Amino acid sequence: MTTIPVRHGAVGVVSGPRTSPIRRLVQFEANAEAAIKIFLQRWSIPVLRIALGGVFVVFGAFKFVPGMSPLETLVQSTWERLTFGMITGPTAMVLTAILEVVAGGLLIAGGVFARAGLVVLAVAYVGILSPIVLMPSEVFGAAGPTLTGQYIFKNAVLIAAALVVASRVLKGPDTKR
């Protein structure tokens, strides 16, 4: 049915062909998909930013407690090599913990803090990925990546997530495809 205006402001109803149940179902699906897309465009990147920050806060916090992180030896060796022996042992763990917790906390906070968090995260990734170059025997075994190497390489997903978050929080022009 269609509502049409008639003379003197009165409203009339005209009967028309009824839409089929299949056509209504297809339209309902299209409307639902559009609503979901709008919701995801609004919320998916903020949720990703908070989740990424949460991962760094939790894994960074583990490093404050001696023996809690399975990569304690690797973290200490990495710092020792990156700083030419100036930072070693527990100091390396505390610095890593601070770096990761700060990066995560800034990402969770959002806004201008998220931009700063991305910078801190970029610095953290230098250390996180450096064992690939500095200690290849720890990262690669005869049959491929070691368990340590797999732990490091899974960061590719976190780096991709950081890039997506950066696309939203960094200032600059928005481009549409």
Results as ranks from 00 to 15, higher is better:
residue 31 N to C: 05
residue 168 R to L: 08
residue 150 Q to F: 09
residue 26 V to S: 15
residue 15 S to M: 12
residue 69 S to N: 07
residue 76 Q to K: 11
residue 104 G to S: 10
residue 128 I to Q: 02
residue 63 K to R: 15
residue 70 P to N: 08
residue 55 V to C: 05
residue 66 P to V: 08
residue 42 R to S: 09
residue 55 V to L: 14
residue 24 R to S: 13
residue 151 Y to W: 13
residue 73 T to F: 04
residue 154 K to H: 02
residue 124 A to I: 00
residue 173 P to H: 12
residue 19 T to A: 14
residue 96 T to D: 10
residue 120 V to R: 00
residue 123 V to H: 03
residue 40 L to G: 06
residue 77 S to D: 15
residue 139 V to P: 00
residue 33 E to M: 13
residue 158 L to I: 06
residue 165 V to N: 01
residue 78 T to W: 03
residue 142 A to R: 11
residue 75 V to M: 10
residue 121 L to C: 01
residue 111 G to H: 06
residue 44 S to Q: 11
residue 144 G to A: 04
residue 33 E to T: 14
residue 35 A to W: 10
residue 113 F to D: 05
residue 8 H to L: 12
residue 140 F to A: 07
residue 95 L to K: 02
residue 87 I to H: 03
residue 82 L to D: 01
residue 13 V to G: 06
residue 162 A to I: 07
residue 111 G to R: 10
residue 30 A to W: 04
residue 53 G to T: 03
residue 102 V to I: 15
residue 38 I to Q: 14
residue 75 V to H: 02
residue 137 S to H: 08
residue 71 L to Q: 13
residue 161 A to V: 04
residue 139 V to G: 01
residue 135 M to S: 12
residue 143 A to M: 09
residue 90 P to K: 07
residue 98 I to R: 01
residue 121 L to Y: 03
residue 143 A to N: 14
residue 147 L to M: 12
residue 67 G to V: 01
residue 89 G to A: 09
residue 146 T to F: 03
residue 30 A to F: 08
residue 174 D to V: 15
residue 102 V to F: 11
residue 59 F to H: 07
residue 142 A to F: 07
residue 155 N to M: 08
residue 152 I to D: 08
residue 3 T to I: 15
residue 158 L to W: 11
residue 17 P to D: 14
residue 2 T to H: 13
residue 46 P to S: 13
residue 111 G to W: 02
residue 35 A to V: 06
residue 147 L to W: 09
residue 154 K to L: 04
residue 74 L to C: 03
residue 158 L to F: 15
residue 149 G to C: 08
residue 50 I to H: 04
residue 1 M to L: 14
residue 137 S to F: 04
residue 136 P to L: 04
residue 48 L to N: 05
residue 120 V to Y: 01
residue 101 V to I: 11
residue 139 V to I: 15
residue 65 V to Q: 08
residue 44 S to D: 08
residue 87 I to V: 15
residue 30 A to T: 11
residue 140 F to P: 00
residue 112 V to D: 11
residue 152 I to H: 07
residue 81 R to E: 13
residue 125 Y to T: 11
residue 127 G to C: 10
residue 106 L to W: 00
residue 75 V to Q: 05
residue 94 V to N: 00
residue 37 K to F: 10
residue 93 M to T: 02
residue 177 R to E: 13
residue 141 G to T: 13
residue 95 L to W: 01
residue 111 G to E: 06
residue 73 T to I: 10
residue 65 V to N: 02
residue 8 H to G: 10
residue 128 I to M: 09
residue 25 L to P: 00
residue 75 V to D: 05
residue 32 A to F: 12
residue 123 V to G: 10
residue 8 H to P: 00
residue 152 I to F: 12
residue 54 G to E: 07
residue 76 Q to D: 06
residue 26 V to T: 13
residue 72 E to R: 04
residue 146 T to C: 06
residue 6 V to S: 09
residue 176 K to P: 02
residue 104 G to F: 12
residue 152 I to Q: 09
residue 171 K to V: 07
residue 95 L to N: 00
residue 9 G to I: 09
residue 9 G to E: 09
residue 148 T to L: 08
residue 87 I to M: 03
residue 169 V to Q: 01
residue 129 L to D: 02
residue 156 A to D: 10
residue 48 L to Q: 09
residue 11 V to F: 06
residue 119 V to W: 02
residue 21 P to T: 14
residue 32 A to K: 09
residue 70 P to R: 09
residue 92 A to N: 02
residue 36 I to F: 07
residue 117 G to N: 08
residue 112 V to M: 07
residue 43 W to P: 04
residue 82 L to R: 03
residue 163 L to M: 15
residue 95 L to M: 10
residue 62 F to G: 00
residue 134 L to Q: 07
